[in-house]
Design a protein around this nucleic acid. Structure first.
Length: 155
DNA sequence: GCCAACGTTGGC
DNA sequence: GCCAACGTTGGC
């Protein structure tokens, strides 16, 4: 099983929004980066766990844990001219963009801030902490996963 | 609002 | 296929 970190802007869609969904699930739509699409398609598997990361907000960090409950399938927003994610170049018979479904899995007792991640030397080589990293989904190494879970559950 | 980083686009 | 310009991301 692999571990992931999924970024979302909380103004647009937050961890609390996910929890408020009737089934606590949501399609992770709007990915428009080939590298991230390929990861979803080739590596993300049913049952994988991911951190829900809040970006572009006053206090960036990890709010909790989600589970992948549906593997990659076509992202319908690419065909919707009214959507900000519309892609005129994508054909229905050959969809360019994919999404997975995620489900709320667990809260952290403590919101793990970006500052807390940066303060931990063992996490120094995490992709998320690298300057200029713009991938909205990155893989998380198991040892990093375990350590962050400890931070989130009170050390 | 600034700016570094980096993916994408498009002219050649 | 190169690479400069442009656009987007995201922390600060």
């Amino acid at each position: 099983m692999s571990h992931w970190l999924l970024k979302s802007e909380p103004d647009v869609f937050s961890f609390d929004h996910l929890k408020a969904r009737p089934k606590k699930t949501e399609p992770w739509n709007g990915v428009r980066n080939y590298q991230v699409r390929n990861m979803m398609r080739d590596q993300m598997a049913l049952g994988d766990l991911g951190f829900f990361y809040h970006s572009s907000c006053p206090v960036p960090g990890i709010a909790g844990i989600v589970k992948i409950v549906k593997e990659a399938y076509p992202d319908h927003t690419q065909f919707d001219p009214a959507s900000e994610y519309f892609d005129a170049g994508s054909k229905r018979e050959e969809p360019r963009w994919l999404m997975v479904d995620v489900k709320w899995e667990a809260d952290f007792k403590t919101f793990v801030t970006l500052d807390m991640l940066r303060a931990e030397p063992k996490l120094a080589d995490m992709l998320i902490l690298r300057r200029g990293n713009r991938l909205s989904i990155t893989e998380v190494q198991p040892q990093h996963w375990d350590l962050i879970c400890k931070l989130g559950n009170g050390g």
